[in-house]
């Protein structure tokens, strides 16, 4: 069984926002929508001992997604390979899913035509992935900070990284079981 997941290697990410721009281009997003911003708290520490960490955000394609459960139209759905996506024709833009997502991974555009707006979110570029290609943000990342693959395949990079290194997840305490793993900037080596 396939279970797609992504690993963000924060040791490699330089916050160039290439993935942010690439995603926007590939998905032809309106100007007020971002699927994967790269956030950071700025430079910390005291010179010369300073460092900066970047956190690339994206839909976590949770194993227990609150956004699909609350969708009254079944527009928000999860495939067997774990990809969470929105079928725009079925979406009435009630924004229940937007409010239920703890990661802010969903949004509606103010630039949509009146009465024709719908909820947008990352779908791991599922059309590319099912043709054997990588999501566009992963293919674009020149630092190789984004790693994508099948978590259930023990030979995949994603599986090796998640099982071999210390990784973090965002808000696991909410019970959403997010499937985007972060290798922390200062650390990551399993003790």
């Amino acid at each position: 069984m396939t279970r797609y997941a992504m690993v963000m290697d924060q040791r490699r990410c330089i916050g160039c926002q290439s993935c942010t721009v690439a995603c926007r281009t590939w998905n032809e997003l309106p100007l007020d929508i971002l699927y994967n911003p790269v956030v950071g708290e700025g430079v910390v520490g005291e010179f010369p001992h300073v460092h900066q960490t970047f956190t690339p955000l994206i839909c976590m394609h949770c194993d227990n997604p609150p956004c699909t459960i609350c969708c009254p139209c079944k527009a928000s759905q999860q495939d067997e390979d774990g990809i969470v996506w929105v079928e725009s024709e079925k979406c009435m833009a009630c924004k229940a899913c937007v409010n239920s997502c703890p990661y802010g991974a969903r949004d509606v555009s103010a630039l949509d035509a009146p009465l024709h707006s719908y909820v947008r979110k990352c779908n791991f570029c599922k059309d590319r992935v099912r043709e054997g290609e990588l999501p566009y943000c992963v293919a674009t990342c020149h630092q190789k900070a984004r790693i994508f693959g099948d978590l259930d395949d023990p030979n995949s990079d994603v599986s090796k990284l998640v099982n071999g290194l210390n990784t973090n997840r965002i808000f696991p305490e909410l019970g959403t079981d997010p499937q985007v793993y972060y290798i922390p900037d200062l650390g990551g080596v399993k003790l």
Binding site: K74, K90, C94, A96, D112, L115, S117, Y118
Partner: peptide, 16 residues
């Protein structure tokens, strides 16, 4: 709603 006419789907599907 963003698409009011799709509202009818609420009565046909979903367990939300």
């Amino acid at each position: 709603l963003g698409q009011p006419l799709v509202f009818l789907r609420v009565f046909l599907s979903g367990t939300a």
